[in-house]
Amino acid sequence: MDLQARIYVAGHRGLVGSAILRALQNRGYTNLVTRSSSELDLRDRDAVFQFFGEQDIDYVFLAAAKVGGIRANNEFPADFIRDNLLIQTNVIDAAFQSQVRKLLFLGSTCIYPKYAPQPLKEEYLLTGELEPTNAPYAIAKIAGITMCQSYNRQYGTRFISAMPTNMYGPNDNFDLNTSHVLPALLRKIHEAKQSGSPFVEIWGTGAPLREFLHADDLADACLFLMNNYEDSEIVNVGVGEDISIKQLAELIQSIVEYDGELRFNSSIPDGTPRKLVDVSKIQSMGWKASIPLDAGIRAVYNEYCKQIEITI
């Protein structure tokens, strides 16, 4: 991408989109296009097509999505499949119709089968049953991947798809009803420390293994792929290492300096037993994650504490 290219970041206020926007700005890209959800509802086909028709966009980073943790996916499955199908269908089709030069679609590693071999290779897609707790979201993402591949095949477009592992970083969601595990644990443990609670209840057994990628690393990977990758096949983005939820909780406990007890509620489902991605494909292209988990969580926690001070 040349520095004067007109680039649209869909979902620029979210965890991933805001990181991509920062990365573009830090590298000298100035012709950037953004719209908040109140300014442009990506579920509205007519509004999306009007927007693309007016903006003359060269490149699209499709980071907009309805996302959430196990609880949100369990309680609102229809919302997750409907909203994500609408968002990605409208943006991908409008990008094609307006002849954008290239689009990067962001999926998720939840697209892989629940019991796929570990680490998860790109070719494991559609080889088994999905994890039931987030199947509607995963199916929507699989549809987005297939849509990009189909447009490339039929129309010769340059639509690529990246599959990031579990994300964390600045602008994360700390709402306990909808957040993912890392920000939820950080908030729970921080509030327990502040209130003097003798224990923190953590959902599940603590046994599942998860991989965590900082949003700034993902943004760097997205720019790398936009500049260097042309294939229709998906690309995993991760760190290549995982940690148990119990170990993660203990790490956060240490960072927050909370000396209470961590109690695991095994009556709540764990979800997928393990989810580690094989990152050999993107590493063979010359990209590797660089932000250590400990340092990344410390930075997020510092930002979270500052946000709390502002809102009090």
Rank of each mutant, 00 (worst) to 15 (best):
A135M: 07
N171M: 08
L248P: 08
L276T: 14
S266D: 03
Y229E: 04
M163T: 10
G14M: 03
L213A: 04
D294R: 08
L24F: 02
V91F: 05
D294Q: 10
F51A: 12
S232D: 15
S36I: 05
I310Y: 10
S38Q: 12
C305W: 00
Y124C: 02
Y137T: 07
Q149N: 06
I243E: 07
M163E: 10
Y168F: 13
Q247L: 02
E261Y: 07
L32I: 15
L15F: 01
P136T: 03
G156L: 10
R45D: 01
A135H: 02
I81Y: 11
L176R: 02
I310F: 10
N171I: 08
G260F: 02
L106F: 15
D217I: 14
G204H: 09
P269H: 06
N74I: 04
V33Q: 09
T34W: 12
A295N: 05
A64W: 10
Y124S: 04
F76R: 14
D220P: 05
I282S: 01
N73Q: 11
I252K: 06
N177E: 08
I243M: 15
S267L: 15
L185E: 03
D79L: 14
Q247D: 15
G17S: 05
Y8L: 12
Q118M: 15
R6V: 11
G204S: 00
E261S: 14
R158W: 10
V235W: 08
L125M: 13
A162K: 03
A63W: 00
V235Q: 09
E122G: 00
P269N: 01
N84K: 13
D2N: 14
G286Y: 12
A295T: 10
Y155Q: 09
Y304V: 02
H180R: 01
D259H: 13
G238T: 09
R158N: 14
A138N: 04
G196N: 05
V279G: 02
L62V: 06
E303H: 02
T157M: 10
Q154R: 14
Q88Y: 06
I202N: 05
N265S: 03
M147D: 02
P292W: 09
S195L: 04
R45Q: 15
C305A: 11
E54A: 11
N74H: 04
C305E: 13
N90K: 12
E201V: 08
L21R: 09
N228V: 12
Q99L: 08
L176W: 05
E54G: 01
S280T: 09
V16R: 03
T165R: 03
Q118A: 11
G156Q: 06
F264K: 03
A135I: 10
K102D: 08
V237C: 04
F159P: 07
L185Y: 00
I268H: 14
Q307P: 02
N31W: 06
Y59H: 09
R27K: 15
N177W: 01
D93V: 07
P136D: 09
P77F: 03
L218N: 06
E75S: 12
E309A: 11
K114Y: 07
E123R: 10
K102F: 12
E54S: 11
M1E: 06
I189F: 06
L21W: 13
L223T: 10
V16I: 15
I297D: 00
R45A: 07
Q253L: 11
L218C: 07
W203R: 14
I308V: 12
A215V: 01
G240T: 12
I92S: 03
R22Y: 04
E39Q: 15
